[in-house]
């Protein structure tokens, strides 16, 4: 006790900060190591199965070469997923925005019931309906080889239900903006495009980013809708099939390499758009 009292504020702070730096260092290592390991594994060429060590005995690009070779469907999966992600990020953002804008800016009779119904619907586990969605899509011929448009529809159709975050943002925009525009004689459509939309850049980018990311990680729904078709398979379902007991010995390092390539576009996007993502996550949770 005596010692502590004799220390100055600055010294105290220095110790606290050193401690904080050590903690942060450890945290960073814990969080980043698995990815580093994953990258290392993707360069392992001496064997293709699961191993218990980190550093490959022999380094090489064989796994990446395999992914891009003719005997592997990886590029097809990757292309499919990219197309899906592209469409989904545009359409889903549009759908979510239509929903959240309406619920935030308009007051109409069915508004509250609509919000409550969506809340209740959200409480049902989504997997339950997978088999039904499959059959619905099958009726219109969008399963199997045509799974890509089918998946886009499934991802986009119900996306209105995820309106919370953007509604939270829109609620913070003052209503006087709309009123002023109305006085000037603008229609509601014009208000939407000319007044509101330009102010929504952060939340728009957040929505685009999250909806772009979604399809890359879906290995359940995508596999169900594609029903074994390589032409309709997405990258997550494809990579997941490599980890089945019968395939894992021959494909684990391929999986790692595939994982790295899948992570790249999303990480690059994140690098540039991190600011908006942070704004969206914070905004959504606090205001939503």
């Amino acid at each position: 006790m005596q010692e502590k009292h004799s220390m100055g504020m600055a010294a105290k702070r220095r110790i606290a900060n050193t401690f904080a730096y050590i903690m942060l260092g450890i945290i960073s290592i814990v969080w980043i190591l698995p990815f580093v390991f994953l990258v290392f594994q993707s360069f392992r060429v001496e064997s293709t199965g699961v191993v218990g060590y980190v550093f490959p005995h022999k380094w090489g690009l064989a796994n990446y070469v395999f992914l891009f070779s003719a005997e592997c469907n990886f590029l097809q999966w990757y292309f499919n997923t990219f197309i899906i992600a592209l469409f989904v990020c545009v359409l889903q953002t549009a759908m979510q925005f239509m929903m959240s804008y309406t619920l935030s800016r308009f007051r109409f009779k069915l508004r509250k019931p609509l919000m409550n119904i969506m809340l209740v619907l959200g409480m049902f586990p989504g997997f339950l309906t997978m088999i039904v969605l499959y059959q619905v899509l099958k009726t219109v011929g969008l399963t199997g080889d045509n799974a890509v448009p089918g998946l886009i529809i499934v991802y986009v159709a119900s996306s209105g239900m995820g309106y919370y975050v953007s509604k939270g943002f829109l609620d913070t925009l003052p209503k006087s903006l709309d009123e002023a525009a109305t006085v000037d004689g603008a229609t509601k459509l014009q208000i939407f495009f000319k007044v509101i939309l330009p102010l929504c850049k952060p939340i728009l980018i957040y929505t685009i980013l999250t909806s772009f990311m979604g399809p890359w990680g879906d290995f359940i729904f995508a596999a169900c809708i594609a029903l074994g078709s390589q032409t309709g398979m997405n990258v997550a379902a494809g990579l997941n099939s490599w980890l089945q007991p019968a395939n894992i010995s021959a494909n684990f390092t391929h999986f790692c390499a595939g994982g790295v390539i899948v992570a790249i576009p999303v990480m690059v996007l994140f690098m540039f758009l991190q600011k908006y993502y942070v704004e969206g996550v914070t905004g959504g949770a606090v205001k939503g």
Binding site: S28, F35, L38, M213, F255, G259, V262, F270, V278
Partner: peptide, 24 residues
Amino acid sequence: LWRTILVFSIAIPQFISILYVSKM
């Protein structure tokens, strides 16, 4: 920097990172 390191783990699809961690 600290924030970015943590945020990157969001950017990698869960099925890749979780599957890898489960093998670890």
